[in-house]
């Protein structure tokens, strides 16, 4: 239930920000379309812990801040490799997931792909196949560069559900 309340408030805020008109007619249109969207997603059964992880919001913000710093460093690295200051040495490695539930796997593989210089290309049940542009990036990933900063709370509520 709290998922639906959270989704409804987010959608309403989005409507208000995107429309820019605040007369009663437009706001009632917004309420109608938010209710329609909620009804559709209720029928599709797509709103749960996985698609809308509110139990993670606090730790995810901290994760994003660290991740954006790492993305910045990786960007500088890849730019130097493109203009030829550093060599291009493609590597293919298989790294295990830090956590075993589906949501953590998705977040981890997405973070790996979002970082330039490493891209996940295949998901196995226990690990992910990663293509990196350099040997340094490959060793850093194998040593747990991203896995160390992974939010520890990610598994708890999911394991409790199972």
């Amino acid at each position: 239930m709290k998922h639906y309340i959270s989704v409804a408030s987010l959608l309403m805020i989005l409507w208000l920000l995107l429309s820019g008109h605040y007369n009663p007619l437009m706001i009632s249109f917004g309420v109608v379309s938010v209710c329609f969207t909620l009804w559709l997603s209720y029928r599709m059964r797509i709103i749960d812990d996985e698609s809308h992880p509110i139990h993670l919001s606090g730790s995810l913000i901290k994760y994003w801040i660290v991740l954006s710093y790492k993305i910045f460093l990786a960007n500088v690295d890849v730019v130097l490799r493109i203009i030829g200051v550093r060599p291009v040495e493609p590597q293919l490695i298989r790294i295990p997931f830090p956590k075993q539930d589906d949501l953590s796997k998705v977040i981890y593989a997405n973070s790996v792909t979002l970082t330039p210089g490493s891209a996940s290309i295949e998901i196995y049940p226990d690990s992910v196949l990663v293509h990196t542009i350099s040997k340094e990036g490959a060793t850093a990933l194998l040593e747990g560069d991203l896995a160390d900063i992974f939010p520890a709370k990610a598994t708890q509520s999911n394991e409790a559900q199972q």
């Binding site: 993305i71 960007n75 890849v78 493109i82 493609p90 792909t113 330039p116 210089g117 891209a119 293509h131």
Partner: peptide
């Protein structure tokens, strides 16, 4: 191709 993916990643993020 796989290396070009990283080049596109630069333009997508930073």
């Amino acid at each position: 191709f796989y290396c070009r993916l990283h080049a596109v990643g630069v333009t997508d993020t930073l």
